[in-house]
């Protein structure tokens, strides 16, 4: 028997993160990556995901600090806990990457997505679409006698639910921005 005082599997990083690092169940994670807004930086991030075989469920990017020229890339990805850890470490290794935050494990976070829905229809269907839009707090941003374009902000789940309801009512096109997310609280 080993006389080691230390037990296998001991790691100080497991103090707060109680996920089993060897679990083989995929879970979704929302990552916020702060990068220098320089040419090619998005290609580096995407190339990392495709080159190493990771998944991207959703991705949004825009410059968030116009004086410091930093952008925020929000990525929703999925993988086993060890794959997620590897994704974060690989992202952190990219030279223009400043910070990598895992909003799924760092505490509560708000996630929102904006979507536009084009619904074409007449008669009862048209009235029903408008009624449901009100319930979902979607705005009408374009209307003709045969169609509406609804604008809605919400969680990806809410947007999915609204799209499902609109489908039989004449949904013809959907545009989604992908997830933007921030941690809750002061910091």
């Amino acid at each position: 028997m080993s006389a080691l005082k230390l037990k296998k599997g001991v790691s100080k990083h497991s103090a707060y993160d109680l996920r089993d690092p060897n679990a083989d169940v995929d879970e979704p994670h929302t990552l916020a990556v702060i990068v220098d807004n320089e040419p090619g930086v998005l290609a580096r991030v995407i190339g990392l995901f495709s080159g190493r075989g990771y998944n991207i469920d959703s991705l949004t990017v825009a410059e968030v600090d116009h004086t410091g020229h930093t952008s925020r890339i929000t990525i929703v990805t999925r993988g086993t806990p060890s794959v997620i850890e590897q994704i974060k470490a690989q992202l952190g290794r990219i030279v223009p990457v400043h910070e990598v935050h895992d909003l799924t494990v760092e505490g509560p976070a708000v996630e929102r997505e904006l979507a536009l829905f084009k619904v074409a229809g007449q008669g009862d269907k048209r009235i029903e679409a408008l009624r449901l839009a009100e319930i979902f707090r979607a705005n009408v941003v374009d209307s003709t006698l045969e169609s509406f374009v609804f604008e809605m902000t919400g969680t990806p789940g809410k947007i999915d639910a609204f799209a499902e309801l609109m489908r039989p009512l004449g949904l013809s096109e959907v545009a989604r921005t992908g997830v933007a997310a921030l941690s809750r609280g002061a910091v």
């Binding site: 230390l6 296998k8 599997g9 001991v10 790691s11 690092p21 060897n22 060890s82 850890e85 590897q86 470490a89 690989q90 952190g92 290794r93």
Partner: peptide, 12 residues
């Protein structure tokens, strides 16, 4: 940091 726990899970 990306070399760590990439292939083999380590304790320290």
């Amino acid at each position: 940091p990306s070399s760590i726990n990439k292939i083999i899970h380590v304790d320290l």
